[in-house]
Amino acid sequence: MKNNFKGFIKDIIPVLLGVLLALWINNWNEERKDRKYIKNFYSSLIKEFRDTDKEITEKMPSQKALVDSLDFYSNNETLPLLTVIEKAGGVNGPLIKLNYWKALSNSKIELLEYKKLTILADIEEGNELLKYKRNKLLDFIYSNLTETGKKEKILLKLMMEELINTQIGVQKRIRKILNE
């Protein structure tokens, strides 16, 4: 009986070592693939965020021009809101690109370190807030295109300033990712 047990141990040890080695190699290979995936993800995300940062920066002056125009023409009660918007060059807003983040958040989110994950989630949340504010802004504009009163112009100005502040917050988070 003792001999059988020793033979069993001698036979099982190489099998166990082989299985453990195979598991270790498989884990190592999976980790290597994950690191490559995250590296490619960050590379693509950085390109997307650079484009977004540039677009926010480029759209900001025209948005501020609209705020200034609304302020300047607020006391002119003969000029409709639509004309003030046209004089300022329209209502311009940047497109916040989050395609790579959305793809990762639907698949391998657990591969991200917590700090970056939090910033990316904040950017997504800021983008959703921007969409909401833009929709409210456009609803207000469409409802008041022909209005000439000071109240409507000041309210639109405040809404634009709030939109700009939210964009600045999103841009700061994007730059935090770009500078890491």
Score class of each variant (00 low, 15 high):
residue 109 I to W: 15
residue 161 E to A: 04
residue 167 Q to V: 01
residue 170 V to T: 07
residue 119 I to P: 01
residue 110 E to P: 15
residue 159 M to Q: 05
residue 154 I to P: 03
residue 108 K to T: 09
residue 126 G to H: 02
residue 117 L to K: 12
residue 121 A to D: 09
residue 109 I to A: 13
residue 114 Y to R: 11
residue 146 T to S: 13
residue 147 E to L: 10
residue 135 N to I: 10
residue 123 I to W: 09
residue 104 L to M: 03
residue 102 K to F: 05
residue 137 L to G: 05
residue 115 K to N: 12
residue 169 G to T: 02
residue 117 L to F: 12
residue 168 I to A: 02
residue 139 D to G: 05
residue 134 R to D: 13
residue 152 E to D: 07
residue 171 Q to H: 02
residue 126 G to F: 02
residue 140 F to A: 01
residue 132 Y to I: 13
residue 133 K to I: 13
residue 118 T to I: 14
residue 136 K to F: 06
residue 140 F to I: 03
residue 150 K to I: 05
residue 104 L to S: 06
residue 112 L to Y: 08
residue 118 T to C: 11
residue 112 L to G: 06
residue 110 E to A: 11
residue 161 E to T: 01
residue 119 I to N: 00
residue 174 I to W: 01
residue 123 I to P: 07
residue 129 L to H: 12
residue 158 L to Y: 07
residue 156 L to E: 00
residue 123 I to F: 07
residue 114 Y to V: 09
residue 156 L to M: 03
residue 121 A to H: 11
residue 161 E to W: 00
residue 150 K to H: 06
residue 167 Q to D: 05
residue 133 K to Y: 15
residue 167 Q to Y: 01
residue 156 L to V: 02
residue 156 L to D: 01
residue 115 K to P: 09
residue 153 K to R: 08
residue 160 M to W: 00
residue 130 L to V: 15
residue 155 L to K: 14
residue 109 I to N: 15
residue 174 I to H: 01
residue 145 L to D: 02
residue 138 L to G: 06
residue 160 M to D: 02
residue 141 I to M: 04
residue 154 I to K: 10
residue 133 K to T: 14
residue 173 R to H: 04
residue 138 L to C: 11
residue 150 K to R: 13
residue 138 L to N: 08
residue 159 M to I: 00
residue 137 L to S: 04
residue 128 E to Q: 15
residue 137 L to K: 07
residue 124 E to Y: 15
residue 110 E to R: 11
residue 112 L to K: 03
residue 137 L to N: 02
residue 148 T to G: 06
residue 147 E to M: 11
residue 171 Q to E: 04
residue 124 E to V: 08
residue 154 I to N: 06
residue 159 M to C: 01
residue 111 L to V: 01
residue 149 G to K: 12
residue 173 R to A: 04
residue 131 K to S: 15
residue 114 Y to W: 09
residue 124 E to H: 14
residue 123 I to A: 10
residue 114 Y to C: 06
residue 144 N to K: 03
residue 117 L to D: 10
residue 148 T to W: 06
residue 147 E to Q: 14
residue 156 L to T: 01
residue 109 I to F: 13
residue 133 K to W: 10
residue 147 E to W: 07
residue 113 E to C: 09
residue 140 F to M: 00
residue 163 L to D: 03
residue 172 K to W: 00
residue 152 E to W: 07
residue 126 G to T: 03
residue 141 I to N: 01
residue 158 L to N: 10
residue 116 K to I: 04
residue 131 K to F: 15
residue 110 E to H: 15
residue 166 T to R: 08
residue 139 D to E: 09
residue 168 I to P: 04
residue 163 L to S: 00
residue 124 E to C: 07
residue 152 E to Y: 07
residue 148 T to D: 08
residue 134 R to Q: 13
residue 118 T to H: 12
residue 134 R to V: 07
residue 154 I to R: 08
residue 169 G to K: 00
residue 157 K to Y: 07
residue 134 R to H: 10
residue 131 K to I: 12
residue 107 S to G: 04
